[in-house]
Each structure stands twice: as structure tokens, then as C-alpha cells.
Computed example of a mutant assay.
Amino acid sequence: MKKIFAFTLSLFISFLAFGQESLPVRGLAIAAPNKGNLDRFVKFMNEELAPRSVNTLILRVDYNFQYKSHPELVNDNALRQKDVDKLVAAAQKGGISLIPQINLLGHQSWHSDLEKLLQVYPEFDETPGIKLPEKYVWPNEDGLYCKSYCPLHPDVHEVVFEIVDEIIEAFKADAFHAGMDEVFYLGHEDCPRCQGRDKAELFAGEVTKIRNHLAENEKRLWIWGDRLIDGKTTGIGLWEASYNNTHRAIDMIPKDVMICDWHYERVDPTAVMFAMKGFDVATSPWRKTDLAIKQKEMMTELRANATPEMKEHFTGMVQTVWSGVDGFLDRFYGNSEEDSDAKCFKALFEKE
């Protein structure tokens, strides 16, 4: 009887070890909390992330930190270093890799509002002739979704790299997420430096420049993967993939860039493409729980059936949240039956 129990226990432990090993990246990507909801979020980290074996936390900081290198870029109510220290302590306690994010290249505006970089440095704007409307609608004549900074402006990287370095140090991070999703404005005719240039080369050049800067201090670059997918050939479309030919950059950027491959409407198997190109990739769902479960099953199957050379490129899952922290936590603790990012997160990472 004891032998049967020992054998059963051994199988159970092996099963748990296999399950954990099969998804080495178990992540959450969410906006950094502000000072008002900081303690609530730290409590969530302590009580929910570690017990669910979540080991990666990507926090969209952007300009919500009190940068000393560029105080002109600080938003109101920004986190102080002592606030960040609470996040770092909770992450270290739970064995969680904390990865700060600042949107680089694209997402320099939202609807009718500029983000801080282009507010303060309008000369960095890739499309200075396109003005933000009082009331934003999509689609529009200018093809405006979000503004971009010009990757060829001679002064832009001096500014953004200083805040990137500062936020990495503040979070004691080994990696940095640069966003770089949904870049529609690139190589635009309004830009005297970029007009007429190959958009794939421009995108690849910016990814490589950021990656090389981080590599100088042995930090790793993470980005969203949509601009590296051919939206027309795959039929995936212009949001989750590229319609402006940036997809060819996949063959021009360093292979140690980590890809977060987001898909919210279908279980698109593009992780295979990234892995076959030599990239580590994590699949990223949002708020459709049935799709998230299928995506997790696909990722697990890919790791289980891949060759040793391919297996390690299929790293796991990163749940995305596009609301503020309070909204997500309200949904998480509200236990609503309605499908949401919180329900999706719970389904992906069950409490042990």
C-alpha cells in the first residue's frame, strides 16, 4: 500500500513539475498602479500572483513615474521611488520578474490627447502636419490611430533612453518592454527624415537600436509581435498584424528579442512562425476566456511536441489588461459571470 501511495505521489509531483515546466512564462501585463491604488495592487500581488505561479509582471509605466533625468515628462500623480520599492519588494517575495514598459515609437497619442513625449518635444513628431481632432473617430481621413515619434530624429533617443535606463534601475529589472504595437505612422510623407524609406527597415532599425542599448547593460528587450506579422497574407488584418509592410522586419532584428504575440479574436498559431524564425514567444490573450484556454492548450501542445531546438522558444502565456488597475481588481474580486480579462486571467492561472 505504501509503495502504491509513494508511486502515486511521485506521479502527482511529476505531473505538477511537468505542468510548471511546460509554461515557463506565466505572465500578466497591466498598467502600473497609481499612488491611490498601489496598496490594493500590492495586496493582489501577494495574495494572488504567487499562489497562481504567475512569475512575470509587465507594468505599463510610461510617464507615470517621477523621472529625475527628465522631470518635464512626468505625469500628475506619478509614482515615487518609494512607491516602486513596494512593487519590487512584493515581486521579489513572490519570485516574480518585474518588467517595466514605456511605449516607444508608436502610441505617442491616444484619441485627441498627446502623450507626454510629444507634448514636451513636438519636434519628435513623425506626422507634425496631422493635428489631433477635438472629437476622435475611426476611421478618419488622416488614418490617425496613434501618433509615432520619428525614429530618425537625431535627439529622440538621448531623451527616451535616459528614462528607459532610469525606470529599469528603479524597478531593479532584467528586461524592458518597449510596446511597439499598432505602429501605423512610419516612413510618413510628412516626415523629412523618414519619407520614402522602407518601413520594414525603419521598424527594424528602431527595434535593433533599442535592443542594442539594453544589451549594453545586459537587459533584454520585449515587444508586442503584431508589426512582424503579414496582415494581408495571413488575413489577420491591420490591428493584430501589419498592413504597411513592417512585417519584413522579422528577418532584420536580433533573435534575442522576446515576442508577446497577442490575438484577441481567434487562436491564430503565429507563435509557430516566431519560433521558426528563432524568437522566444509568449501568447497573449485578453477577455475571451474560451479563446485563452485554447491558446494555452495550443502553447502547451507546441512545447510538448516540438523538437528540442524549437521547444524552448514556446515560452508560455501573458494575460493582457487594458483598463486601469482598479477596474481590473473590481472585476477580479467581483466574481461576475460576465466574460472579462479578470475571468480570463483566473482560467489561465488557477490558484494552487
Rank of each mutant, 00 (worst) to 15 (best):
H153Y: 01
K311I: 03
L118Y: 04
A215W: 04
D341P: 05
K343Y: 04
I236F: 09
V325L: 05
D226F: 09
D85F: 00
S69G: 01
W322H: 09
I168G: 01
Y333H: 09
R40V: 12
V120A: 05
S323W: 02
A241N: 05
I250G: 05
A31I: 11
A204L: 10
T320A: 11
S53P: 02
Y243D: 14
V120K: 12
V61Q: 08
G225S: 06
G143H: 03
A32E: 02
S112I: 10
H153G: 04
R331S: 15
V281I: 13
H263N: 15
L38Q: 08
V160K: 06
P133T: 08
K199G: 06
T307C: 07
E134W: 08
L117Y: 03
T208N: 10
A170E: 06
P122Y: 10
T283G: 00
R211W: 13
K294E: 15
T246D: 03
M276Y: 13
D125S: 05
T8L: 15
T283V: 15
G179T: 09
A241H: 01
L87R: 10
S53F: 13
V25W: 11
E338G: 02
C146E: 15
E350P: 12
V156H: 02
K68Y: 02
P51C: 11
E240C: 11
G19Y: 12
F349E: 07
P128T: 11
W224F: 12
K2I: 11
R331P: 00
I293R: 01
E134Y: 06
R266N: 14
A89K: 13
E115H: 15
L114A: 07
I223D: 08
M180P: 00
G179I: 08
L57N: 08
D326E: 15
L9E: 05
N37A: 04
I223Y: 01
Q319G: 03
F349T: 04
I253W: 09
F44G: 04
M252V: 01
I167G: 03
K209M: 05
V321P: 00
V156C: 01
I96P: 02
V88M: 07
L144I: 10
N64K: 14
F176H: 01
D174R: 13
A78W: 00
V281H: 06
N335T: 08
K86F: 02
T300L: 13
W286K: 09
A78V: 05
I58D: 05
K296M: 15
M298W: 11
F203H: 02
N335C: 08
R211Y: 14
Y149A: 01
A173L: 02
D261S: 14
F18E: 07
R303N: 06
G205C: 04
H177E: 07
K68P: 00
S10Y: 07
A78K: 02
W286I: 08
V325W: 04
P154R: 10
A282I: 09
S284V: 15
I168V: 15
G334C: 06
D39Q: 11
D181K: 10
D256K: 12
K2A: 13
I229P: 00
G235D: 09
V61R: 05
K131E: 13
M273C: 06
